[in-house]
């Protein structure tokens, strides 16, 4: 087997996970909301994009695969963003644990609705999604990943980003600074949902077959894990976390003795990270950097 046949899909998956982690990081890391229903937005993006390419524009997709791919992932992202708005407006009145529970509930509702919707294949799944753009697909994934990261990076350095950060830092202080807390919370939530949907759109085309079980609660947990390992509230951390959580189980696959217990080792590493470095890898990096600075002073 050509090793590229293994490596390229793996790297595509990595890119999608990077977008997922970066998008959850906007909600959990930057805005300080505790959301663990990200698989729901991922699912909406995937199903909306799949429906777009298979049901809405099959002829267009055959004629103009690149444009159709862009249109489909944008449909997925927009659908997820809209879902973020619909879920966010009532749920963001909640804080902390309560918000977490509500978002878990939302994620499960999405999965169960998909599981029972005949139009998208219900429990049989959604087959026959064409891999638009064929061999160019990985490049499109990469392009959109870099684009998403750049967009979020710029957003967080704008005054909107500053408002979002201030809510995480201290909500009451943010309100007394004249920041419309409810608006910016919803905004951050929609941005996070939008990019999760974008990632879902690529996932649908990457897998060519999607099933509600691809979007179960463990996916939400895995994305949360990425940003915890990488360090909440750091874009670099989200990227690093996605890389580790995606590639580590794969790397362990190659060792004959370790491959059978690789998920065990993986779980152990996660526990150790949280025990010793709860600020994540970027927290560790910052600490190193800070001590060096102190030495210089």
């Amino acid at each position: 087997m050509n090793y590229l046949d293994y490596l390229i899909p793996l790297l595509q998956l990595l890119c999608m996970n990077v977008i997922l982690a970066a998008s959850l990081n906007v909600i959990n890391g930057y805005c300080g909301l505790f959301s663990i229903g990200h698989a729901g937005f991922f699912a909406i993006g995937a199903y909306a994009a799949a429906a777009g390419s298979k049901l809405l524009m099959p002829e267009f997709a055959a004629a103009q695969p690149a444009l159709a791919l862009i249109a489909c992932v944008m449909i997925g992202a927009a659908a997820a963003g809209l879902a973020g708005l619909v879920v966010g407006i009532p749920c963001l009145r909640l804080t902390g644990d309560y918000l977490a529970i509500a978002t878990v509930g939302f994620g499960e509702i999405i999965r169960i609705v998909l599981l029972n919707t005949e139009a998208v294949g219900a429990s049989r799944g959604f087959p026959g999604i064409v891999l638009l753009t064929g061999k160019w697909f990985p490049l499109w994934v990469l392009l959109f990943t870099v684009g998403s990261l750049y967009f979020i990076h710029r957003l967080m350095r704008s005054s909107t980003g500053r408002a979002i950060l201030s809510i995480r830092e201290d909500e009451i202080a943010a309100r007394s600074m004249g920041i419309n807390v409810r608006f910016y919370k919803t905004f951050a939530f929609v941005v996070g949902a939008f990019f999760a949907g974008l990632s879902g759109g690529f996932f649908a085309h990457h897998s060519q077959f999607i099933h509600p079980s691809n979007f179960n609660f463990m996916i939400s947990v895995m994305v949360l894990l990425m940003i915890v390992v990488g360090g909440m509230g750091s874009q670099m951390g989200a990227v690093l976390g996605a890389i580790i959580v995606t590639l580590l189980p794969e790397a362990l696959r190659f060792s004959e003795t370790l491959s059978s217990i690789r998920m065990l080792i993986f779980g152990l590493i996660m526990i150790l990270v949280v025990l010793w470095q709860p600020q994540g890898l970027m927290g560790f990096y910052r600490k190193l950097f800070a001590t060096r600075k102190a030495e210089h002073a």
Binding site: S166, R168, D170
Partner: peptide, 19 residues
């Protein structure tokens, strides 16, 4: 006080001028 402890002094003042 409720200052933004994770932001610099300059950024705290900028938050004041946000509106």
């Amino acid at each position: 006080r409720r200052i933004f402890s994770g932001l610099s002094v300059k950024e705290n003042l900028e938050m004041g001028a946000y509106i």
